[in-house]
Design a binder for these strands. Structure first.
Lengths: 214, 214
DNA sequence: CTGTAGACTTCTGTATACAGTCGTGTGCCA
DNA sequence: TGGCACACGACTGTATACAGAAGTCTACAG
């Protein structure tokens, strides 16, 4: 919908708008060659996305996440992905299963050493999972969360052996969903996200000293 | 912050803006005696709150919830409240426990037959619980969800015996949290919300024929 | 040298005007 | 009489101008 909103969101996610940067409406307007009106709208939406925040002094800045906050985001995501998996097992359609399979097969074909779309295709799998839950507010919430988490480089996918492990876990998850075993699906999804959290946080803590990556 | 946003949100929650009503910017602007600019901002924020939605034709309407969607909202809330209770048990401070106790004692003192602030004080208890989880994204998400659910009259609190039962369940929940028993706290909270869901949906379905309440 | 007051600068909030798009209705032609 | 085209109207998206709040800097006085 809003072109500027999408552009700015991408610019934040991909780091072109620096963390902590003061976002002054007139400056942003000049930068993107539009007037203040669309800038305001974009900023409001980004604020509700949790990608920018108002400082007490009234200014708006690109949100800085501490390690603690990243941990909280992942904790939340763990229970939401578990829930999504459980409901997917209960509510899936045949089309949902096909979509999951197809996306995971795409993932299997990729060579993590050379592919540069690991994050996108992995996200596609999770979106397929969310969708299979057939719970709109849940899908919406997971999307929001994902955008906040995506603010950070997804280097964990390049860890040696990680990609293959992910594809295998996805296999097990699909199988549980197809069998309608909600409990097992929830467990697998929970463990899956817990591993992602631990890897990510190890990464994050290691990067704490390199300010430009944080 | 935004006065108009808050006013409109309240007007939607309390039914002064009718469900399904077409929200045309200029009309709203006249109605609230402001210009279109703040109206646009308020509408965008309400849209992200899920209180209004764009129809494919481009118009914005006050969102209509089907029984299925209400069910989904509650399903989501059940797992989030469970999560909040679990983390509260793990992360609570002494102040959190005091707050929970105090709010529940306030609830105990009320006579559900005559009090007209049942919803507010019950909400205060749950907010205290969320807060005790010390997980900001979770608190944020629960608040958003609550606003969507609040769109509907909370008549379930007036069911005979329901209020006393709620206070007792809260007692058990507080005790589990204080003991640090996350598993038990999560279970109690989950059951608590499940009961709320079932009562609410029974109510909701019974009201389906009375269009003005739906 | 330090504290306070006042003005200037800067930013956000709001109003309004203008442009573009989309749907609908009417009129004309086949 | 039916279909197509053109025009008008209504609504949203965008730009810009104006107002008000708040912070800062400087100057003057104690």
């Amino acid at each position: 919908m809003n072109q500027l909103y999408l552009t700015m969101r991408q610019d934040i996610i991909e780091g072109r708008l620096q963390v902590g940067e003061q976002l002054i409406e007139t400056t942003i307007a000049q930068r993107y060659q539009v007037s203040r009106t669309p800038v305001r709208e974009a900023l409001r939406r980004l604020e509700q996305d949790g990608l920018v925040e108002r400082s007490p002094r009234g200014g708006i800045r690109v949100k800085v996440w501490t390690a603690d906050e990243m941990f909280d985001l992942y904790e939340l995501r763990i229970i939401l992905e578990s829930g999504a998996a459980r409901w997917a097992a209960e509510r899936k359609t045949r089309l949902d299963v096909i979509r999951l399979r197809q996306t995971n097969e795409e993932m299997r074909k990729l060579d993590p050493a050379v592919a540069n779309n690991l994050r996108d295709v992995n996200l596609a799998f999770h979106e397929a999972l969310w969708r299979a839950s057939h719970n709109a507010p849940l899908i919406d919430t997971l999307g929001r969360l994902q955008r906040q988490i995506m603010r950070h480089p997804a280097s964990t996918l390049k860890h040696p052996g990680r990609w293959a492990a992910i594809v295998q876990e996805h296999d097990r998850l699909i199988e549980a969903i197809e069998r309608g075993d909600g409990e097992r699906a929830a467990n697998i999804a929970g463990e899956h996200m817990t591993e992602a959290r631990d890897l990510r946080l190890a990464n994050y803590l290691a990067d704490q000293d390199k300010p430009n990556l944080a």
